[in-house]
């Protein structure tokens, strides 16, 4: 960490966004006036309806797109295209920040699982012995040893997600950014991923997660940011603060009210968006 920032204060702030604006093709606004600070070792969640700018925000943190206006800094250094043209900085940044894409088919572009997992560390110049050790450890932890020689297109969605996570974790990044890590997964795989994130956070990693799945928010967040339809932060706070604010969640399409059958009777109350789980069965 010593190569970034000046004093202890700067060392502790991983990302700092000041009044950030971004639009696609210069006419479709995606982020409008974001001010966010993310400290080292924190668990951050970004929640919001579709089109609220969550994925854009994460891509900006990973240095894949850059702000039209305002600044994004990483350990005190402003992120821009010019900065990433410096190979040394780029390599250092990529080995510290790992990004797991929402669509695993995008992230897994090699012919086999093994080649996909080792792609990152190979580009970053990690020694082959070290890569082998990390690969063995990760495969055992995620139970994907059997998949290594298989082509990616033969995997199920859950297996693809695990491989995508492995392909990022093998870089051993200090900061892990996840875009909808549990979308479309069965409950057991979701649980495994949440456990893994908690474990990584306990090991000192900063975890930044964008999700619709309010069931995992409490466990993967110290601070929750709610993105609204105006593509900016509507409210931030602890998971408890946010999840108990039903008016806020309703206003931002994160809960909905409808009748359904429960314990043999039909009744009406707010529901979480994901998977029709019930948040408030009184």
């Amino acid at each position: 960490m010593a190569d970034y920032g000046g004093g202890n204060y700067m060392d502790n702030i991983v990302f700092e966004l000041k009044d950030v604006y971004f639009s696609y093709l210069g006419k479709f606004p995606a982020l409008c006036g974001l001010d966010i600070k993310i400290n080292r070792g924190q668990k951050i969640s970004i929640i919001g309806a579709n089109g609220s700018g969550k994925s854009t925000f994460l891509q900006m943190l990973d240095g894949l797109i850059f702000a039209d206006k305002g600044s994004v800094s990483f350990y005190g250094q402003q992120l821009n295209e010019k900065k990433f043209n410096d190979c040394k900085f780029s390599q250092d940044f990529r080995s510290k920040v790992g990004f797991i894409f929402q669509n695993s088919d995008v992230q897994l572009f090699c012919p086999t699982v093994k080649e996909d997992i080792v792609f990152g560390p190979l580009q970053l110049g990690v020694e082959k012995d070290q890569i082998k050790k990390r690969l063995e450890k990760l495969c055992a932890a995620l139970k994907i040893e059997e998949l290594l020689e298989r082509p990616v297109y033969q995997l199920s969605i859950g297996e693809k997600r695990k491989v995508a996570i492995a392909s990022t974790l093998i870089i051993d990044p200090q900061i892990l950014i996840l875009d909808e890590p549990t979308a479309g997964l069965d409950p057991l795989t979701t649980r495994n991923i949440v456990d893994l994130l908690i474990e990584e956070n306990n090991a000192g990693k900063t975890i930044i997660t964008a999700t619709h799945d309010l069931h995992i928010v409490d466990e993967v967040s110290d601070i929750v940011y709610v993105f609204g339809q105006q593509r900016s932060v509507v409210k931030s706070g602890t998971a408890a603060d946010i999840l108990n604010d039903l008016a806020l969640l309703q206003e931002n399409n994160l809960v909905h009210i409808h009748s359904h059958r429960h314990k043999g009777r039909v009744h009406i109350h707010p529901h979480l968006h994901s998977g029709h789980y019930v948040d408030d069965h009184q």
């Binding site: 894949l64 894409f101 995008v106 572009f109 580009q123 870089i171």
Partner: peptide, 12 residues
């Protein structure tokens, strides 16, 4: 998107 995913993992 794939190009971004490659960049994200250190492709130069």
């Amino acid at each position: 998107e794939v190009y971004k995913a490659m960049l994200s993992r250190g492709y130069q």
